[in-house]
């Protein structure tokens, strides 16, 4: 039996939720989960998603050319797997966009093979 403890983020309680689990095919086996420490059902759901498929939205900036800003803010849509966060962040360093760009414009699709897109969260006007 393996063990993992995490802080639930659903409310300010921040319950320390512990998941005891067994490894099957190199991955935590959901059937084996014994979840303790949560004080409400949301804690259990959170623990299951963190154990099976944790995702995060990566936000950052890319270089901007020919516009009114030095950098343009971007995010991943939908969120990427948690273990891809640093890889995607590194990828952003290689990107340069040219004005004009509007909020919602897709800058790269399927970034680093995640099937997520890099989407502009700011406007870049020519100037």
């Amino acid at each position: 039996m393996e063990n993992k403890t995490m802080t639930c983020i659903n409310c300010p309680m921040g319950c320390q939720v512990n998941v005891a689990y067994e490894i099957k095919d190199g991955k935590p086996d959901p059937v084996s989960f014994v979840i303790t420490g949560n004080t409400c059902p949301r804690g259990k759901d959170y623990a299951i998603s963190e154990m099976t498929a944790p995702t995060r939205t990566v936000t950052g900036t890319v270089s901007a050319k020919g516009g009114d800003k030095a950098v343009l803010p971007v995010k991943t849509v939908p969120p990427v797997p948690k273990d891809m966060v640093l890889t995607v962040a590194k990828e952003l360093e290689k990107i340069t966009v040219s004005a004009p760009v509007s909020i919602g414009d897709v800058i790269i699709s399927d970034v680093c093979g995640t099937k997520s897109s890099i989407v502009a969260t700011g406007n870049l006007q020519e100037g």
Partner: peptide, 18 residues
């Protein structure tokens, strides 16, 4: 530029500039 804005108002997670 991080996300988490607007959950109450727009029922979605926006970044600050959005």
């Amino acid at each position: 530029i991080h996300n988490g804005f607007g959950l109450h108002t727009f029922k979605e997670e926006l970044t600050g500039p959005e």
